[in-house]
Structure formats: C-alpha cells, structure tokens
Amino acid sequence: MKLNLLAVFAGVYLVVLYAPIVLLPLFAFNSGSVIAFPLRGFTTEWFGLLLDTPALHAATLNSLIIAISTAIFSTILGLFAARAATRYGFPGKGGIVGFIMLPLVLPEVIVAISLLIVLMQLGLNSGTWSIIAGHTLICTPFAIAILQGSFANMDRSLEEAAVDLGETPWSTFRLITLPLVAPGIVASLLICFIISLDEFIIAFFLSGNSPTLPVYLWSLLRFPAQLPMVMALGTILVLLSVLLLVLAETFRRRGLRRAGLKDTGGFL
C-alpha cells in the first residue's frame, strides 16, 4: 500500500513537472490570438510569422554565436580544472575548486550586476563578447562536473601503460586520454550550449543593443499580440533543448560504456 502511494505521488509529480511544457504546443498551434482556453482551431500561422521577423533572426544569430563560443571556452576551461582535480593533489585544492564551482549556487543576478558594474566603471561597452565571458563563467562549473565524471571513470593504468611503452605525456594525452573522455567533452559542449542559449539574466544585463534570443523573447512578452508567436518560438526552443539533451545523454552513456562502467545516474 505504501509503495503504491509513493508511486502515485511520483507519477503525479512528474505530470505536474511537465504540465507547463505540454501547454506550449497547444497554444502554438491554436488559431485564437489570446493565450487562454478554450482553444479555437489549428493553425501554423504563428510559425510562419517567425520566419517573417528579421529582429528575431538577428537575435537568434547573436545567441548562436554566444552559445557556440561559450560551449567551446567553458569546455576548455573545464578540461583543465577537471583533469587537475581528478589527477593531482595540490595545496588549497578544495578551496580553488570550490571557488571555481561557486557560480553554480550564486544567484545569477549577482554575477550579472557585478560584471555590468565592472564594465561600466572601466568605461567599456557591454555586448556580445561580455555575454560570452559571463556565460563562460557560469557554464564552466557544469563542464567540470561532467568532465570530472569522465576523468574519474577512466582507467589510469591505460595512461601508465602508454607512458611505459614510450609515449610522451602529450602523445599519451592525445592518443589515450582524449579518446576516452571524448564522449564527456561532447556532452559538456552540448550542455554548455543549451545553458548559454537559454540564459536570460546575464544577457539581459549585458546585452546592450544586440539582444540574445531570450532577451528578445522577454521584450515580446509585454505585447499581448505577440504572445502566440512566443508560444511557437518556445515550442521550437523546447524541442531543440530536448533533442540536444537526448544527444548529450547518449554521449554520456557511450562514455560510461567505453570506460566499462554501469550507468549510475544523470547529469549534475
């Protein structure tokens, strides 16, 4: 009886968790221009509208540039830190790693305002590059968490064997380590890309005249007439995120299999 109750609770929990997202396509394909029930009829008009909005295309391009750069930079910084943290012991390790992971728990608004104020005090214009810098800061902890898993799962004796057989440290890294952690790297790139693409606060504070996709979306939310289009855009964004996530998860599992381990859980 107790078990059943728990299962029912978990089921209901899952349904509530997905409730908002399920509404998204309902309104995206609804022909009524007001976001409310009852639904009117089926239309793809709002998706068509997306194609005719140049400002949206500019914001999308901006977001893609930011997300791709962020993914690459955070994964590189994550590789350094994750390798150092799993392979070596050094003084102050806990403090250093803890500090690097801090953005994970710090409210984003604090990160955003402090970056903005520094830029303002230095007399610099904020913009695309400053958003990339901020996103890299908050994505690096995620990259480290993923990559640390990959490095920790790797069998160290493989590297030792390569060194014993005459490989240099660099060629060992390139020929042995890198292929073994490659799935983790791909997963990290994808996760950082998703986070950066969806991130709003830092972009909102720093975007200046070139909005990212979420910042542009935010500006649309004020106009009721634009809301059906927002729903259509949201549907696409959610689909894209889920697709990338499934891809990242597939790579993560492949990495685990390559390391000869059983799957024990998800991200984070």
Partner: peptide, 15 residues
C-alpha cells in the same frame, strides 16, 4: 525529471 529544467526558463515562468 531533469528535462524540464533544461528548457527555456523564461517560457516556463510565462506558462
């Protein structure tokens, strides 16, 4: 359980 977390925060709040 983690999938909804990875979808646009703005959109979820708006919904």
């Amino acid at each position: 359980i983690t999938i909804p977390f990875w979808t646009s925060y703005l959109i979820r709040v708006f919904l």
